Amino acid sequence: MVETSPTSPVSPLAPFPPLPTEVRSRAPEFYGFVAWSGTYLLFCIFLLWALFPDKYILWLGVSWYPNRDWALLLPAYSIILVLLTYFTYFALAISGTPAFSDMSTITDSRALLPAADDCLNPYARHARENAIPESYDIPIGLVNRVVYGRRRKLNATLSAPAVELKEDSTA
């Protein structure tokens, strides 16, 4: 007699798989710390150069340093560069956008439309009660007729009695 293992679970709890052993590098932590501390060090040096008088900078042993005008020009140029970057990306996004009249704003090359056979409306054959419709993308013209065509009819029927009431009340 051959023993077989049970096909249904023996316990209501599923066995928990062992956790994978990950080997992660801590290099990004060190790089982040070096970038953070380096940034603060450079900012402190920038502030000392921009705010200290010349005699203190010479007393520290620094014999050459850039003109103090750059203390205002560097931040101003940086802000302008950031603003121009945003403007450039915004302009590229607008230039890459197709016109409203372009068909690519409505459909694409992967749209699945029914074959145009001899039927007047290819969607009408799926209106039968027992029909299982195929999966198609609905053309925008049909969507507009259904969505906006009914709204016009509904608005016309709602506004017509109100006009008649006004006419009756004035008579």
Rank of each mutant, 00 (worst) to 15 (best):
A116P: 04
R110W: 05
F46L: 01
S169Y: 14
I94N: 13
T107P: 00
L60P: 00
A115F: 07
L154F: 14
L41I: 10
L154W: 10
I140Y: 15
I79A: 14
L154N: 04
I45P: 00
A127K: 13
L73R: 06
R110Q: 12
V82Y: 12
A14W: 02
A116M: 08
Y89R: 04
P28Y: 03
L113F: 15
Y148K: 04
F100K: 11
T4Q: 10
K153D: 13
L74C: 06
E29V: 08
A111K: 03
L165F: 13
A93L: 07
P139H: 02
A156F: 15
L113K: 06
W70Q: 00
F33Y: 12
I94S: 10
P98F: 02
E134Q: 12
E22M: 12
W64Y: 14
Y136T: 04
R152A: 14
Y77S: 13
A71L: 01
L142S: 08
F30S: 05
E167W: 06
A131H: 05
Y65R: 14
R24N: 12
V143H: 08
N67K: 03
D69H: 08
D108L: 01
F43Y: 09
R128L: 14
L113Q: 05
R125L: 11
P12D: 01
A50I: 04
S11R: 07
V143P: 00
G141C: 01
S11N: 12
T105N: 12
G149H: 01
V62C: 03
P12S: 03
I45A: 15
R145Y: 09
D117T: 07
S135E: 11
Y40K: 10
G141P: 00
S25F: 02
F46C: 01
W59Q: 12
E167H: 10
S5K: 08
D108A: 02
L51Y: 10
L47S: 05
L72S: 13
S159Y: 07
A71N: 05
L158I: 15
L48Q: 09
L41G: 09
F52H: 03
P114W: 02
L84N: 06
L83Q: 08
T88M: 10
Y65G: 02
A91R: 14
D69M: 09
I80T: 07
S8Y: 08
